[in-house]
């Protein structure tokens, strides 16, 4: 019984600290850091050297797909877009982008599939298929080192919707993205460092996955961890969240394809 009063106090103080930090808000622009900064030396070396970065295997396959004729239109990406090193430079840095025809924001994967269905008359690639990841990685690679851009006024509603989703408590654990990635980054969740969660290097080669994966796969991964029902691949909510994350990471350099633990 004697120990119970201090224990109550500790719980009360811990709760108060939680409430206080939940109001922490956005990370100041100059304090933002890519997850790269917190990687170990080995993982950094793996990402930096193309011949040891496993994602290069996808980039090379993506390059082959770029030049390969597809669909009943029998047309390759290269026939419209030409040399990707010039035409795709900076493209991944500004996606998700607003699509005038769809009248909604679409991410890079959806852009590739729209091109496939509308220009190549081909069947769209499945989300997380080797082909879609390969093309996304190849296109993303052309923007490596360029700053993420999020200035399109037409994206504002999606960014706002994404921000709401980021702040919204969800799932059985009743947590929001912001509680980890805005308020408690740099601390540890068990043995793992909590990163700020900037989507600078997608699609990433995640060592845990032993595979390349998209930003949406990563978001679903977090949501499952929060015991929430994850968004479907390509859902408007998922794209809105991607748009908010890219706005939040504006100015940070693209690292695609990045390596993460």
């Amino acid at each position: 019984m004697t120990g119970s009063l201090p224990r109550c106090l500790i719980v009360a103080i811990a709760l108060a600290a939680c409430v206080a930090s939940a109001n922490g808000g956005d990370i100041p622009l100059d304090q933002r850091r890519s997850g790269y900064a917190d990687l170990g030396r080995d993982t950094k070396a793996m990402q930096d050297d193309d011949t040891s970065n496993p994602a290069t295997l996808w980039v090379l396959d993506g390059e082959a797909l770029w030049n390969q004729k597809a669909g009943s239109a029998n047309r390759a990406c290269a026939e419209c877009h030409g040399d990707a090193t010039a035409s795709m430079k900076g493209v991944a840095a500004r996606y998700p982008a607003f699509d005038a025809v769809q009248k909604s924001p679409i991410d890079l994967e959806q852009r590739i599939n729209l091109c496939r269905t509308e220009r190549q008359n081909a069947t769209p690639f499945a989300f997380e298929s080797h082909e879609l990841l390969a093309l996304t990685a190849f296109i993303g690679r052309q923007s490596r080192g360029m700053p993420i851009v999020s200035t399109d006024e037409k994206l504002k509603p999606a960014i706002e919707a994404g921000r709401k989703l980021f702040m919204q408590r969800i799932g059985q654990i009743d947590m929001s993205c912001a509680q980890c990635h805005d308020d408690n980054w740099g601390k540890h969740l068990t043995s793992s460092l909590v990163p700020q969660g900037h989507p600078t290097g997608y699609p990433i080669y995640r060592l845990e996955w032993q595979n390349l994966g998209s930003l949406q796969r990563r978001l679903r991964n977090c949501m499952i961890g929060m015991r929430a029902e994850p968004f479907d691949y390509g859902a408007p909510e998922a794209v809105a969240l991607e748009a908010y994350l890219m706005w939040r990471a504006r100015g940070l350099p693209v690292e695609t394809p990045a390596v993460r633990p």
């Binding site: 050297d49 011949t51 040891s52 295997l57 090379l60 396959d61 082959a64 080797h130």
Partner: peptide, 8 residues
Amino acid sequence: MARPLINV
């Protein structure tokens, strides 16, 4: 699409 990458 198995392909090796070699660096020498």
